[in-house]
Structure formats: C-alpha cells, structure tokens
C-alpha cells in the first residue's frame, strides 16, 4: 500500500541501489508530505540508512531519480540537514561541542569566511535547545552516547533547514535522552519542519510518527501510520516472504550482473 501525496517534499522514482553489485534497495517509489514526522521502519539490513544516504547522493544509485522540494538536490542543499549515524565519526577528534555545533553554520560558498558573531549565537541557541549549552566547551570524546547525539542535533538545528534527515538518532541513547529528542522533533514539526527518521523500534514508532515508510529491500508501504501499521503489512516487512527476491539478489551478486542494462 503506497499512498502518494500532492506537492511532495520528497519524491523518489524507481530507485534501485546496490552495494558491491548486491541490490539493497529495489525499485523504491514514493512521495512524502510536508511538515510531518516520518519514520523509515524495517528490519536490520533492510536498506533504511541506504535510502537516507541516497536522498543525499552519498551512495551511487543504479537507477531512478530523486526530487527534493520538487528540485535537484544541488539547488536545495541549504534547505536540507542530514544527521549521520553517531558511530560514523571518530569522537576522539580534537574538537569541542561548540566546534561541532558551529559546523552547522558553515557555508561552502563563503570559502574564506570566518564564523560571525551571529553564527556563534545561533550555535549557542541550538546547543541550548538540546540542553547541551553547559557542555559547549567540553571535548567531544568525553561525551556520553546521548550527549554525542545531541551535539549532532545541535549542528543540524544550526543549519536552519526545512527538511531533516536523521539516521538512527535514538540508537544507543538512554530513555531520558530519547524522550527529549522526541520532544525536540515535535517542536520542530510545529515550526513546519519535515523530519525523516530512520528507526527500528516498532513499539515506539506508532507514537512518534504520523507517516511511515515500511521497507525491506523493497518498499512495502508508505502512508499515515494508522493505515500502514496493519498486521499484514508488518508481517510482510518483517516476515520471510521475500525469499525469492533475496535469492535473485544473491544471484546478481554472484554472477556480477549489472542492475540495469546499459
């Protein structure tokens, strides 16, 4: 069940992505509404993070196209903020929490520009919003998992984007931090922001999101959470009904076939 929307903020057409020639996303096709809190749900290895990365052109796609704000990514980058998985960086890097938040104020066009007083104020405000202002001068290697995640969120807030792509923001954070992050997302939604979150806990997904993408290599469903969270669709996402598809995927890798004829 894939529900399409008018004037989507994200539009994905026939997207196929492969790693080492094994397809991890297969013919994915959906549209997403503006101003919602959207969850990307699916089992491990279903291609959730890959989907987020392909939206930001971080992985090569085999086929299909993507439109954001009905435009090409390069024209709307300043309206999008991407928050990678916390483990994707080395936290033993010599930088303070403030340094990380300030990275959100970085403008690629302004090559030689220094951070202005305004940049620093915005970064400090964002740290305050995630309750990290007291830690502004702390070295990032001394942070707990939840604090690292909040430092990343402060950086994202500092970008002042309209669309936020979050890769597993709740992974490895404590319950109190998870609650505060959810509250933050809700207040961002109130400001009209669209938040796309990779998440793997079904239980909390019902409470957190009002629109959900169910994926397991292929897109199982896309729609309002109440319509999508049916036993049937969830079983289809998490159950073992995709054996044929995964068999063919393995075969493609084995024979080194291209995903599309050139």
């Amino acid at each position: 069940m894939i529900i399409h929307v008018e004037n989507p903020i994200v539009e994905v057409h026939d997207l196929t992505v492969s790693y080492n020639s094994k397809p991890v996303l297969w013919n994915v096709d959906f549209t997403l509404p503006v101003g919602q809190m959207i969850g990307i749900i699916g089992p491990n290895g279903a291609g959730k993070s890959t989907l987020l990365k392909s939206l930001m052109d971080l992985v090569p796609t085999s086929s299909g196209f993507i439109k954001l704000f009905n435009d090409d990514l390069d024209k709307v980058r300043h309206k999008i903020s991407y928050v990678p998985q916390r483990e994707s960086v080395d936290w033993d890097f010599p930088a303070s929490v403030m340094d990380v938040a300030l990275m959100g104020r970085y403008k690629p066009k302004n090559i030689f520009g220094r951070f202005t007083k305004e940049d620093k104020e915005i970064a400090a405000d964002c740290l305050k919003r995630v309750n990290m202002l007291d830690y502004a001068n702390r070295q990032i290697s001394q942070l707990s998992g939840g604090q690292q995640q909040r430092a990343f969120l402060a950086r994202a807030l500092a970008q002042q984007a309209d669309l936020y792509l979050m890769d597993e923001p709740f992974a490895g954070v404590d319950a109190a931090t998870e609650k505060s992050i959810v509250d933050l997302f809700l207040s961002m939604k109130k400001e009209g922001k669209t938040i796309l979150v990779v998440h793997h806990d079904l239980q909390s997904a019902i409470d957190y999101f009002n629109w959900v993408l169910l994926i397991n290599t292929r897109l199982v469903a896309s729609g309002p959470v109440k319509e999508v969270f049916t036993t049937e669709l969830l079983q289809e996402t998490y159950g073992g009904q995709l054996t044929l598809l995964s068999k063919i995927g393995d075969l493609i890798k084995e024979k080194q076939f291209p995903m599309r004829e050139q």
């Binding site: 930001m56 971080l58 980058r77 999008i80 903020s81 991407y82 990275m103």
Partner: peptide, 12 residues
C-alpha cells in the same frame, strides 16, 4: 577530516 558525509551533504 571529522565528518566526510556531512561535508558532502552541505555541498562542499
């Protein structure tokens, strides 16, 4: 050096 993916997403 710190976050290559982030750097790419902001258009660096």
């Amino acid at each position: 050096s710190f976050d290559l993916h982030f750097a790419k997403t902001i258009g660096l």
